[in-house]
Amino acid sequence: MSGKGRLDKDRLRVVLYEGPGAAPLADEARFETLVALLEDGHQVTRPAAGTAVAAADDSQHLVLGRFDDASAVNDAGFQSFDISDLDPAGVLEGVKARVSDVGADQPGGWKPWFPVIDYDRCTNCMQCLTFCLFDVYGVDGQQQIDVQHEDKCKTDCPACSRVCPEAAIMFPKYKKGPINGDVVREEDLQNESMKVDISALLGGDIYSALRTRQSEARQRFSTERDESKALLERKRCLAKLKKNLDIPDEVLMTLPSVGDIQDRARRAREKAERRQDRSQTMKDRRPTEDDWGI
């Protein structure tokens, strides 16, 4: 996975086929085969029992079945894979080998943790963009906040959803609502553990408290010449914040300053303006041969 709008390679579409030319699977074998494939990250299409297979789209299809005659499947242009003598683990191994053979993308390797914006609630205030430490957010051509680099998001960190004043940012794999996508209730917006004022988090109480405590701890423990105690104190301080907000230590440790935040907001605004200017320039000037690919 390498960012919005890009598939590194096509995924192979696995079809579990029980139509003409293939014997039906036993219920348990079909179920366990499905589980094995899904647990490994594959997508599986199951056509209605007894029906012929047809292409769902222009992706590559691998058709699994207990074939006595695979000609109908092969003649339709699909790659068939006879699973008659295989248990679910054997089917999975065979599928993985064929995925590799055709150079398709192997699933897995990334926990899909990233923000999902509820545009019915979002007011485009850009607090998430200015807060995010990892450049996950950007703005689109209409100056609308947008998630542009899902794979840069810090796994298990819901910090940006905490600073959203409208509870418009979801992490579907988060444990609690409304961040997990559950209905947003009025009390959620009032709940301090849900809604953290960005100025308090970055320029006010928490941030300065953290810095102050770090500084105090450093002075105190440097006298004692015991760095491990300083580290313990820092961990205690972070643990409290982590418990309250579910924000990972490493994110808290790298919270940007207010100046950083303002600078980041200015850069994002300038980038959006440059994009808009370029777009307007393209509209205003006469098209050249280059524009038409001649």
Partner: peptide, 14 residues
């Protein structure tokens, strides 16, 4: 007939 997907979030991101 049905489509079973490993993870809808992952598909969305891709």
């Amino acid at each position: 007939a049905f489509d079973a997907v490993a993870d809808l979030c992952e598909m969305s991101a891709r």
